[in-house]
Simulated scan of single mutants.
Amino acid sequence: MSFSISAKQNQYITYILSDESALSRLEVVPERGGIITRWSIEGQDIFYLDEERFANPELTVRGGVPILFPICGDIPDNVYVYDGQPYHVRQHGFARNLPWEVVEQSTDSCCKITLSLTSNEETLKMYPFEFELKFVYELQGKTLKIYQEYINKSDKVMPFSFGFHPYFLVNNKEQLALDIPASSYQVKDTKEVAPYDGHFDFNDEEIDVALKSLKRNSASITDPSRSLKIDLKWSEQYSTIVFWTLKGKNYVCLEPWSAPRNAISTGENIIELEPGATCEAIVEIDVTSI
């Protein structure tokens, strides 16, 4: 059979999803925030991973595909107010820092692994809602699909946003062709809104911009230096694409967010889920050789 799932004990238990016919291999580390750490196709890595940061549980991971929940980005002073009470939650939320549980595996027609994260005493101090998240990572050929379920298990309406922070490995940023379906972006620090024409100045020390008013649910990165095109697709709940990179680092991040930063306070594009209800979403990444 060309599909297989195995587990190996590294610093953390790592699940390896393999599609042998496509030489496609995905690594998932449930304990470290349910993160996808690696994806290689025909021996070529798709994602960047900072190994030193990954090895240090005190640090957030830079690399792979970190999960963002219940906020995307940061909020002023890491504090928001709900029902008159202040709550502290750090940048991108806590889902990426908590251990997830593997609840199902399948290799019938593709590789599928289902992970779950449930609210607990620790999360309730930061976010006063009971919830369950269920993510299915599905690998088939050169396609990765991430199916998500956000379930409100509390007795009140649950406000949240969600997203992903994929780090795409690149050798030469100057050669990249970016197709992001927006005509303007907002700079994180200055809040300046500037027209977007498909190009960024990679000589800047940092690029951290949010692209909203998206014209379609897909974007792409074409990387001639690696002979790859990466297509990113997302379901309708995603309203914002964040592009982030640092000078001298061989990655670019193209991040689908359901809402912009600080949405939990401003309400912009925030999802308000009724008690007992489920929000379903999907992100898909397709890789082709060029």
Rank of each mutant, 00 (worst) to 15 (best):
A219F: 02
F131N: 02
L23M: 09
W234F: 15
G34E: 00
T266D: 08
L124Y: 01
G33E: 10
L139R: 12
H88D: 03
N171M: 08
D286M: 13
S227I: 02
P30Q: 05
S154T: 13
L214P: 07
P256S: 09
Q105P: 06
L98D: 01
L139V: 10
A263G: 02
P159C: 07
C111T: 08
D179L: 02
T266C: 13
G34K: 00
I264H: 00
E236Y: 09
E132S: 15
K145Q: 15
Y127R: 02
E205D: 15
P30Y: 01
M158K: 00
I180P: 02
I35R: 06
V136E: 14
Y80E: 03
P260L: 08
L228G: 00
H199G: 06
I67F: 14
D83F: 00
V187Q: 14
S154G: 15
S21I: 08
T266P: 12
L144Y: 04
N217E: 14
I270F: 10
I264Y: 01
S184D: 13
N217C: 11
E274H: 06
S40L: 08
D108L: 15
V61P: 06
D231I: 03
L17H: 07
A7E: 12
S161C: 14
C111W: 02
T118F: 01
P166K: 04
R90S: 10
P159Y: 12
E27R: 03
F129N: 06
M158E: 01
D231T: 04
Y167W: 07
Q140D: 14
A281M: 04
L68I: 10
V209E: 11
P99F: 00
V287L: 11
V287Q: 04
V170T: 13
W100K: 01
H88P: 01
I36Q: 05
E130G: 13
P70C: 03
Q44P: 06
C72N: 10
P159W: 05
P181T: 12
N78H: 11
A95Q: 07
E132D: 12
I16L: 06
E27A: 12
H165Y: 12
G33V: 08
F162K: 05
E192H: 02
T143K: 13
E255S: 03
C253Q: 09
W234R: 11
Q11D: 08
K215T: 10
E236N: 12
G163L: 07
A277P: 02
S161K: 03
F168T: 03
V102A: 04
L17N: 02
C72R: 01
V252L: 15
A95H: 05
M1V: 06
A7R: 06
R53W: 12
R261V: 03
D179W: 04
K212L: 08
I207S: 10
V136C: 15
P166S: 09
A182Y: 11
T245W: 00
T14G: 08
L176S: 08
F160S: 04
G198F: 08
P256K: 09
K247H: 14
Q9E: 13
L178S: 06
V287E: 00
L176W: 09
P57Q: 11
R62D: 10
S225I: 04
K249W: 03
R25I: 13
E52N: 15
T114I: 05
D208L: 03
A194G: 00
T60A: 14
N262M: 05
H92G: 05
Y12N: 11
P57G: 07
T240Q: 12
V242Y: 13
E255C: 05
V193F: 09
S6L: 08
M126P: 01
D83Q: 14
D74H: 07
F69Y: 12
G43A: 06
C253Y: 05
I207G: 00
